[in-house]
């Protein structure tokens, strides 16, 4: 099983290999990027407290999971890591030509400047949102045509919600 895991906006390729039967009954090997795989063991109790061991190193942790996000308290700090769905990962890598504008934070739609069919230039304001009394302007990520405005004025949304979609571009 292989996935991309996001930690502090850096992506790491993590692969778990099974070495079943024969000598290593049920033990797993974990490979990070293309480094040598190491034996790995996670032992936590029902409150999420325990230890993680990777090769010769280990540390105590407390963790909780919600969907694809793993929250870990370790080294006296708190982290959140996201396991990225492979299709979304592949889709996001189509070099910055994405026409999706996502909410940078949770909030409310205050003002909408475009309608479906409008032609916009890169940087043009499309929508104004408000969060905690701060106004933010959502601008067009590239030249294009507005395909869909997903929310109405006054509607609330969570972080990463798609606000405006630009139409797919012609032949790459």
């Amino acid at each position: 099983m292989r996935r991309q895991i996001d930690l502090h906006n850096n992506h790491f390729e993590v692969t778990v290999l099974e070495k079943s039967g024969f000598e290593r009954f049920g033990k797993k090997l974990l490979q990070i990027e293309k480094n040598a795989p190491q034996f790995v063991d996670l032992a936590v109790n029902e409150t999420g407290e325990g230890t993680i061991q990777f090769g010769k190193q280990s540390t105590s942790i407390k963790m909780a999971v919600k969907g694809e996000t793993v929250f870990i308290h370790a080294f006296n700090r708190i982290f959140s890591l996201n396991i990225i769905d492979p299709i979304e990962h592949a889709a996001s890598k189509v070099g910055g030509r994405s026409g999706l504008s996502r909410a940078p934070m949770p909030g409310t739609v205050v003002d909408i400047n475009v309608v479906e069919g409008d032609q916009v230039k890169k940087g043009e304001p499309m929508m104004t949102i408000e969060s905690m009394k701060m106004l933010t302007v959502i601008k067009a990520p590239r030249d294009g045509e507005v395909a869909q405005v997903h929310l109405e004025s006054g509607q609330t949304f969570e972080k990463n919600r798609v606000l405006v979609t630009l139409a797919e571009e012609e032949e790459l």
Binding site: P86, H89, A90, A91, K93
Partner: peptide
């Protein structure tokens, strides 16, 4: 899909 990689995923 937009790419071969996305298709394979």
């Amino acid at each position: 899909v937009n790419s071969e990689q996305e298709g394979i995923a």
